[in-house]
Simulated scan of single mutants.
Amino acid sequence: MFPEVIETKRLRLERCCRERVSPRALYAAAGTSPTIDAETEYLPWSPLDTLADAEERLAEFERQWDDRERAEWVVRPRNGEPGAGEFAGTAGLICRWDRDLALPAIWLRKPFWGRGYSGERADALLSVAFDRLDVGVAAVPIHGENDRSYSAVEQYVERHGGRYEGRLRNHAGRYDEPADHHRFSVSREEWRAADGAETTVRFPEDHTDSASDW
């Protein structure tokens, strides 16, 4: 149901599983990296403590994928981008089928900040949510103090015809402490009216032609 590989102009998203990512590679990026604390400051998960934690996280991603609860992809810059092929972070799509809702998520490593990758990844995941999964609404929750992400999300949500819904007090938790959430959302109809269907996204397994032929 979920595409194994997604390609945009500058990014390649590959399924985050043990077949494609070793636990050691994930642990190096999400556990022992010197920038991981800054990267996860406003995220709902903590840095990995051990290599075994990395193994467990990959196994959980695989279970969620198979159960159609969540798709998680590794983000890699494509050829021609600085750091091409490197592990730049992960992108996720959480599915709440009972609410006709999808929740896009992202974690980017600090060396890849400031390139506009978050918006490009959002374009791709909204295409997956609305075109392939036929979900009615995509919602983006952001930690109440995460000003950097707020600005980025505001831009791509407005571009896709969506809206800011407000600040939800004590809506989430972070290290067992309550936290506020900003919430943005885009409906399938808003996305289509804003020409979201014209987003340049490729799913290489759907084609027999060259995946690099844009």
Score class of each variant (00 low, 15 high):
residue 22 S to R: 15
residue 11 L to F: 08
residue 29 A to N: 08
residue 94 I to T: 09
residue 95 C to G: 00
residue 25 A to Y: 07
residue 46 S to P: 00
residue 85 G to F: 08
residue 38 A to E: 15
residue 57 R to G: 07
residue 13 L to H: 04
residue 96 R to A: 12
residue 19 E to Q: 11
residue 35 T to L: 12
residue 92 G to T: 14
residue 77 P to V: 14
residue 29 A to T: 03
residue 53 D to M: 04
residue 87 F to S: 08
residue 95 C to A: 09
residue 91 A to D: 00
residue 71 A to G: 15
residue 16 C to V: 04
residue 58 L to T: 03
residue 42 Y to G: 07
residue 68 R to P: 02
residue 25 A to I: 09
residue 29 A to I: 04
residue 95 C to I: 15
residue 84 A to W: 05
residue 19 E to V: 04
residue 103 L to M: 12
residue 95 C to W: 11
residue 43 L to A: 08
residue 105 A to M: 12
residue 88 A to F: 03
residue 41 E to L: 10
residue 10 R to H: 11
residue 99 R to M: 10
residue 61 F to H: 09
residue 75 V to M: 10
residue 9 K to D: 15
residue 14 E to H: 02
residue 97 W to A: 12
residue 52 A to S: 12
residue 18 R to L: 12
residue 77 P to D: 15
residue 28 A to P: 01
residue 89 G to F: 06
residue 92 G to H: 05
residue 43 L to G: 02
residue 85 G to E: 11
residue 38 A to I: 09
residue 31 G to Y: 10
residue 70 R to K: 13
residue 64 Q to N: 13
residue 37 D to G: 06
residue 72 E to D: 15
residue 50 T to Q: 02
residue 26 L to G: 00
residue 33 S to V: 03
residue 33 S to W: 03
residue 37 D to C: 09
residue 68 R to H: 13
residue 29 A to Q: 06
residue 98 D to T: 13
residue 82 P to G: 02
residue 89 G to N: 00
residue 8 T to C: 01
residue 85 G to Y: 06
residue 102 A to R: 02
residue 27 Y to T: 07
residue 20 R to S: 14
residue 13 L to W: 02
residue 76 R to V: 05
